[in-house]
């Protein structure tokens, strides 16, 4: 099947198998390996990307469902080599250790901050509920998102 998807501002058209998930398409066809696969039941959130501005677990979406959509992945967050304020906040607050869940965390953080520009700790934790991190105990991820909110509101 033919799909046309805009990823990080660039439009691609590919003939793909209908059963290919969006995350497989990103990783295998586009070589955008920043989006990770951590489970097979949509439980971990490592594959979170933005589709038309909404955070989506890209393992639950078929690539053909994203036909005509605008997708942003972790590779599209930094602009001109400068980290996005959320990325910078994760570095500042040590919001990552092994880095595997991190792309999904950054993408879901963007979604949380879009919906709650001044999030409470509870709102942040609620927003992170669909994403597992096994390294940080979430402590510094919450701090990172709090700092990102401050930076973005400046």
């Amino acid at each position: 099947m033919n799909v046309t998807i805009t990823v990080n501002g660039k439009t691609y058209t590919h003939d793909i198998e209908p059963r290919i998930s969006l995350v497989q398409y990103l990783r295998e066809t586009l070589d955008l390996t920043g989006t990770h696969i951590g489970c097979d039941t949509s439980g971990c959130g490592a594959c979170t990307v933005s589709v038309n501005g909404e955070a989506v677990k890209s393992c639950t979406m078929l690539a053909v469902q994203a036909d005509g959509c605008e997708v942003t992945t972790i590779e599209g967050m930094a602009q001109n080599g400068e980290m996005h304020p959320i990325q910078a906040a994760f570095k500042e607050k040590h919001g990552l250790q092994c880095g595997f869940c991190t792309p999904g965390m950054v993408m879901v953080a963007a979604d949380i901050l879009k919906n709650h520009p001044n999030p409470s700790e509870e709102e942040i934790r609620h927003g992170l509920k669909g994403n597992f991190c096994r390294c940080t105990g979430y402590h510094n991820i919450v701090k990172s998102i709090q700092l990102a909110a401050e930076t973005l509101n400046e």
Partner: peptide, 21 residues
């Protein structure tokens, strides 16, 4: 000291084994 490894992880540029072709 802030971590030097973070930039690549935060930009999705880490090289985990499954990323290698």
């Amino acid at each position: 000291v802030k971590r030097r490894e973070d930039a690549r992880f935060l930009k999705g540029a880490g090289t985990y084994t499954d990323d290698i072709k």
